[in-house]
């Protein structure tokens, strides 16, 4: 039975090898993946570049007039890039500023809380499996569901305000005040994603040899020193993975925040992907060129950040190997 099955599987590959030769077979094996990559990643990227250097509102690439770098000039036209009001496309620069602050707070908060959670869940404790599942559960939820749950909690007549008012306090404009709304987008985003990063860090913690901790315990090393001298250095490769992934994900934040606040109040929670989406699709005039240019700029920034982190990771590995 197994021999027949093996022959059935072999037959087409034998034919392919006879046709292309053994040396070209690796290409045959990666071809399907390359095809999918080409259609869904490479082609859209090339199209994006075309949209960025063409103008008008036409959707079909062939109908769009070439405008060179004018979309880039339009986006970068500022008297002072740190004051969005002085920029021609002020909403783009507000989104850039908001995203920068969001990334800084969200990534630091996310990594810190994920690490703390992983450390707690790595200890021997009752119901450990249950708690691991509880922390991972939000990752399984659709971003829209996450946003709707939190909206239900944070809206003026929401659960949190009911508690505040019930305790004798005044209603708090959680989603109506720019500062509050911005803070809550960070909290919600951390809540929704920390389970995934906790899992990566937990895997890293479990890979640290137990005898190192036993030796430290026998030497009477304080817990804090154990954390800084054993846990953190050996967890560093996982931390770097978490940092890179969290950073990319934070820059790309859109779905749950869009449903939760719609970018408001004003533009307080409008991040870069929402700017791109609204410029390209939500307005009557679909300014695809400007949106494509903005995505290229964001892509460039992400590439630089990723390369920097990869370099740091390589350096850390080199130092550890010495």
């Amino acid at each position: 039975m197994i021999t027949t099955l093996a022959r059935l599987i072999d037959a087409p590959f034998d034919a392919l090898q006879r046709r292309f030769g053994a040396a070209r077979m690796p290409y045959v094996f990666v071809a399907p993946n390359l095809l999918v990559f080409g259609i869904f990643v490479a082609a859209p990227m090339i199209l994006n570049v075309w949209y960025a250097i063409t103008g008008g509102t036409q959707f079909m690439p062939a109908d769009r007039p070439y405008v060179g770098a004018s979309n880039f000039a339009e986006l970068l036209d500022c008297t002072n890039h740190f004051i969005p009001a002085t920029c021609k496309q002020d909403r783009f620069w507000r989104a850039v500023a908001n995203t920068s602050w969001f990334v800084a707070f969200q990534v630091i908060g996310l990594v810190a809380i994920s690490l703390l959670t992983a450390l707690i869940l790595n200890r021997r404790m009752p119901w450990r499996g249950f708690f691991r599942a509880v922390f991972f559960y939000p990752v399984l939820l659709s971003p829209v569901v996450v946003a709707l749950i939190w909206k239900w909690i944070l809206q003026p007549d929401g659960v949190l305000n009911a508690i505040v008012v019930g305790s004798g306090g005044a209603r708090v404009p959680f989603l109506l005040d720019p500062g509050w709304a911005f803070s809550w987008t960070i909290v919600v985003s951390i809540w929704a994603h920390m389970g995934f990063y906790t899992l990566i860090l937990l895997a890293g913690l479990q890979a640290i040899p137990a005898d190192l901790y036993e030796a430290a315990e026998m030497d009477g090393t304080p817990h804090v020193r154990v954390f800084w001298r054993i846990t953190l250095p050996l967890l560093m490769p996982n931390m770097l993975v978490v940092l890179v992934l969290a950073l990319i994900r934070a820059v790309q934040s859109f779905d749950e925040i869009f449903v939760l606040t719609g970018g408001g109040p004003g533009t307080a929670t409008q991040y870069i992907v929402q700017y791109i989406y609204e410029t390209a699709f939500a307005n009557q005039t679909h300014i695809l060129g400007l949106a494509a240019t903005a995505s290229m700029l964001v892509g460039g920034v992400l590439l630089v950040l990723t390369l920097l982190q990869l370099a740091a990771s390589a350096r850390a590995r080199g130092e550890a190997g010495r």
């Binding site: 404009p173 109506l176 408001g264 109040p265 409008q270 609204e278």
Partner: peptide
């Protein structure tokens, strides 16, 4: 109330 015009951003209808 800011609940309507102030609660979302961009061109979103509320």
């Amino acid at each position: 109330s800011k609940q309507i015009w102030g609660s979302v951003g961009g061109t979103a209808y509320r």
